[in-house]
């Protein structure tokens, strides 16, 4: 129980919630505003993280060049996925996006020469040498920590991630209020009607998919920096479902519902570690990990059945159909 009181643990939870906020913001843009059933969001996170790590380790690039390229690669991934598939019916599109994210994970797992394979980023460099991609980032984090006078690296990361998340949330909010965002919402509502008003629905959906993918790429960068090591298993479809849950929890079609959803999700996810009372105390700690995911699943079910507009969503504007 001692961890419950430790600031370090909650800093960590806060960092993860910030990363999930960015990931889920991409999904909110794609689904909440453009109606795209993207179930492969985690793939773009993987593309962002791997592109950055590979460029730094194998090509010796500066982190500050490799990182934006990682984000760009994720956006390009969105374009590549969207170009052939956005014309499909929504149920097919949903299945294809899951398949896409699994293809990306399989490739990362099996192309050892490129990605380090299932051993993860440690095996990116020469054999027998543990590769590191976050040297420059760690330096930057140290400088920030000293400058801000913060007690720990995690606390510094907390500040950095949430600053980034807030900046991205604000930009998304601003851009979605423009006529561009209005067209996007009209396409979510009725693609045929939007087309009959002269809107190129395909182009808008493609933009939403690519922008959402870029946001996932940013989340991937922070994920990579926070954990200083990752492997293909970190990008299992489960993470996409977490992002969906966050968007649903917060509420559909509302930008600032995303951080609320992410924080609530973080509390549910981390808080369930401390279920020291019955009936949870009957289970061993490794079993409680399963319990935690059962609770997540039940929350998704409860949301879909009982509150399809989410905690903050407006029923008149966007509900799950």
């Amino acid at each position: 129980m001692s961890t419950l009181a430790s600031a370090g643990f909650w800093e960590f939870v806060g960092v993860v919630a910030g990363i999930y906020t960015i990931l889920a913001l991409g999904l909110q843009l794609q689904f909440g505003f453009a109606g795209l059933l993207n179930f492969g969001q985690v793939a773009f996170m993987a593309i962002g993280a791997y592109t950055m790590a590979i460029l730094v380790v194998k090509e010796g690039w500066s982190t500050w060049l490799a990182a934006p390229l990682g984000v760009a690669a994720a956006a390009v991934g969105g374009l590549v996925l969207g170009l052939p598939t956005l014309r499909l019916r929504s149920d097919y599109f949903a299945i294809v996006t899951i398949a896409f994210s699994e293809i990306v994970r399989y490739v990362a797992m099996n192309e050892d020469a490129l990605t380090g394979g299932s051993q993860g980023t440690i095996a990116l460099g020469p054999v027998g040498q543990a590769a590191q991609y976050n040297g420059q980032w760690a330096q930057f984090q140290h400088r920030m920590q000293a400058w801000l006078g913060l007690p720990s690296a995690d606390a510094t990361m907390l500040v950095i991630v949430w600053l980034a998340a807030l900046a991205l949330l604000a930009s998304a909010w601003a851009v979605l209020r423009t006529p561009w965002g209005r067209v996007l919402r009209s396409i979510r509502e009725d693609e045929d009607a939007a087309a009959s008003l002269g809107k190129n629905a395909f182009a808008y959906k493609l933009q939403a998919l690519a922008l959402g993918a870029a946001l996932a790429g940013v989340a991937g960068l922070f994920y990579a920096w926070q954990f200083s090591y990752f492997s293909p298993d970190d990008f299992a479809p489960l993470l996409t479902f977490f992002a969906w849950m966050i968007v649903l929890l917060g509420g559909l079609g509302r930008v600032f519902a995303v951080p609320v959803g992410a924080v609530v999700f973080g509390f549910i996810f981390a808080g369930t570690r401390f279920l020291g009372f019955a009936p949870f105390s009957w289970f061993a700690s490794d079993q409680r990990a399963y319990l935690r995911l059962i609770i997540i699943g039940l929350v998704i079910l409860a949301l879909v059945v009982l509150r399809p507009q989410g905690l903050l969503g407006k029923r008149e504007e966007m509900v799950l159909e």
Binding site: R185, S186, E189, A193, E316, E317, M318
Partner: peptide, 11 residues
């Protein structure tokens, strides 16, 4: 226009 006036109901 559409037969069942396609007003974008949630806008």
């Amino acid at each position: 226009t559409f037969q069942s006036a396609r007003a974008l109901a949630r806008m």
